[in-house]
Design a protein around this nucleic acid. Structure first.
Lengths: 150, 150
DNA sequence: ACATAATATATCGTGCACGATATAATCAGT
DNA sequence: ACTGATTATATCGTGCACGATATATTATGT
């Protein structure tokens, strides 16, 4: 008989805060990435490749929670922009390996400062962020399990 | 000289968890909203209207962090689906008032159960969710401020 | 070796997001 | 009353998201 259950209010909905958090993060990243000609999602792909190169489309997909229907067009745009190359894996012709170009690799130099800006934007210490991240990941795990089980 | 600063890793990036949280929430809502013919964002508009009716386009925009470039097409789809009406405000012809149709108002009945499912999906108590929401809102406030100040 | 299933990517259509811009209505200051 | 600024919505183009589907390649079982 709780009002919040019977009559949802936007003010109380956590999902709206998660949505707003993404919007806010997006808006901090945008001006930082604009000089590099990267979108937010393209930057996440780059971070993945700076860490390990090459990655297949599905390996990128696992990291970002996306599939080829989203990734293929995006990776083609990044290829057209000269950031990455797309080549069929000789060992398994179903796979497409994504690698950084020299230009894409050079952008790595800008990443440290971008991350510093983001950390600073949160106004939280590294320890506070870690604790929050742990909490958030627990919640994500629960929600994902609920989504799968129906 | 921290590695996490110099060389960002996807594993450490909070923004990726926020992104994943939205994906997960979206996936829980989708099957619950499909019977109503609503998308996730359309549902949020409905929640706003169940709370207060009418709302202008910009009032909806304030609540969801969106502007007419996103809302106008979406509201037109909702109008075509018979969920809402769009009428110029007689007192200020610049504004467009959005109101629920009888059909849209009836959907209110399904909202309680949907919210119950979502709460349950988080696997957290109401008190835990409130604490998390407070923490998240603090973080959003900081990030928004950083985005505005540049 | 061969038929079948599973896997990896690509394509298509619809619905957000959002910067840039356009248009019309209202407001403010003279 | 008039001009310029402000406000509210709409339009356009590009880039995600994602369900559904198609195609090609590899793996599996007989």
């Amino acid at each position: 008989m709780d009002d919040k259950t019977m009559q949802p209010l936007l003010q109380h909905m956590l999902c709206l805060d998660l949505y707003a958090a993404n919007q806010a993060v997006h808006r901090v990243y945008k001006p930082l990435l604009a000089p590099l000609g990267l979108t937010y999602l393209q930057y996440l792909v780059m971070v993945g490749l700076w860490e390990r190169d090459p990655l297949s489309v599905s390996e990128i997909g696992t990291r970002l929670g996306l599939e080829s229907n989203t990734l293929t067009p995006m990776l083609k745009r990044m290829e057209a922009a000269g950031l990455i190359t797309r080549r069929r894996d000789p060992g398994d012709e179903r796979r497409v390996n994504i690698s950084l170009t020299a230009e894409g690799d050079k952008m790595r130099a800008a990443a440290g400062e971008i991350q510093r800006c983001l950390m600073e934007a949160t106004g939280r210490s590294e320890a506070e962020l870690l604790r929050f991240q742990e909490d958030l990941r627990g919640l994500i795990g629960n929600v994902k399990r609920a989504a799968e089980d129906g």
